[in-house]
Design a protein around this nucleic acid. Sequence first.
DNA 1: GATTTAGAACTAAGCCCTTAGTAGTTTGCG
DNA 2: CGCAAACTACTAAGGGCTTAGTTCTAAATC
Lengths: 133, 133
Amino acid sequence: MTRKPEPEVVPRPLTPVELELMHIVWRLGEVSVADVLAALPPERALAYTSVSTVLRILEQKGVVESRKQGRGHLYSAVLPRDAYEAQSVRHLVETVFDGTPSALVARLVEAVPLSASEVDQLRELLDAKGRKP
Amino acid sequence: MTRKPEPEVVPRPLTPVELELMHIVWRLGEVSVADVLAALPPERALAYTSVSTVLRILEQKGVVESRKQGRGHLYSAVLPRDAYEAQSVRHLVETVFDGTPSALVARLVEAVPLSASEVDQLRELLDAKGRKP
DNA sequence: GATTTAGAACTAAGCCCTTAGTAGTTTGCG
DNA sequence: CGCAAACTACTAAGGGCTTAGTTCTAAATC
């Protein structure tokens, strides 16, 4: 009935709000609560305390770290965006595509509209990969 | 404070247990609670009532439907696996990769070990895509 | 037809997520 | 120094997820 405390093979994705704030942290580097608040789109009016709470949760999860600065704290990412992207893709391959990466890409090119230039870009990526395995 | 009831642009992913059961439903087609229970790996000993509850939640969400059969119910997928895969990829592109599909693939080929044959497969997918846009 | 049994519905407990208020502390300013 | 503003920690409420027990009903068996 209780959650298994074993370290997860593929870490659990960030929750929607956590991810929303992390995008800001990744973009700005080192941020105060006020910075995050200011960076949110106008229609997304979170309370100061809500942002503060989520940042504290993220710190508790080890996703960001903070250092004291003047009156408040400055938060910065411990988990780089690259790493989270990689983690997310792995998680999706694992849980939805039976661990088969090509199945994901197959579905992607079929289900998501791709511009010609994007297709070209992908081809280049594969060529680079194919030449030095 | 309450969740906005607007229809989501990209539907929320299934929860871990829901997805776990859906894999079984997709594989077996039309299943009873007992079927699902039997299809679970031995180390995954869910109670009958737990499976029943999750299937009922899935039905409530419109992901499966049921018809009465003798003593119990038979559940079958309303949401095909294809569609869910597409939905999941779109969701990931949207929330993690800024809506840029090629960024996802770039991260994939970098972060997930791909066999040479998988790389070839991907190339073929792209060729097929490139020829008829 | 009565009893056993299989299943569904209801319920609940524990946990996490989201949002935010309140209270208390620290800092900067006059 | 004292006050106002900013900031943090604590707390809470509402909702969803996970797991499962209990209870009630319907079906199968004798």
